[in-house]
Design a protein around this nucleic acid. Sequence first.
DNA 1: CCGTATCCTTTAGGATACTG
DNA 2: CAGTATCCTAAAGGATACGG
Lengths: 107, 107
Amino acid sequence: MERELPACPVETTLLMISDKWKVLILRDLLNGTMRFSELRRSVGNVSQKVLTANLRQMERDGLVHREVYPEVPPRVEYSLTETGRTLQPIIEAMKDWGTQYKAEHAA
Amino acid sequence: MERELPACPVETTLLMISDKWKVLILRDLLNGTMRFSELRRSVGNVSQKVLTANLRQMERDGLVHREVYPEVPPRVEYSLTETGRTLQPIIEAMKDWGTQYKAEHAA
DNA sequence: CCGTATCCTTTAGGATACTG
DNA sequence: CAGTATCCTAAAGGATACGG
């Protein structure tokens, strides 16, 4: 459940969000709760297996909440925990930086 | 020299800093100019080949400046460009978040 | 000291098929 | 619909040796 955290706080953060899709998962869940299939579409070209694995890890890290509705067919909704939402400043900073960088590197 | 930038700004940022060591390179170069060997030690367990490759890519992306002093033995110093320094808010946000997260997940 | 070349290992991620 | 299981691939990264 718990993992060893590096001494350096930057490395701790990396441990949590450096997988290929996690930042994009955060980007999308910051807009609100999403179903699995919905998230898969919005994140992009991610396989089901990997998206599930990423979400499970984020759940264990306390960033994501998974809510299962026992219906047929099943419905599963993902949302950010309070801790997960504290990552917002990082995602925002990345959004701002990318926007600026692209503006300066346009034709 | 130039690479195709994704439409999403967050993904653009990821393209620039999502390699395993780039965030740590930024963390360290934000403290000032460093020699190659110095950087290698401070970044951690990175191989020479990979550190070089990461730095070269960051140079092409306009984030890092490489200054070669034609001495014997050679001296090479790396520093952040002005654009590179604009990444500081992201690194700072990551540092803050990691610090906070660790505090809440102690004991 | 800094870097390149070569080869090899690892592992994250993809494809596909199948289930409750 | 939302998974799990299995197998496979590809690309990043590591180890080592050598060169300017």
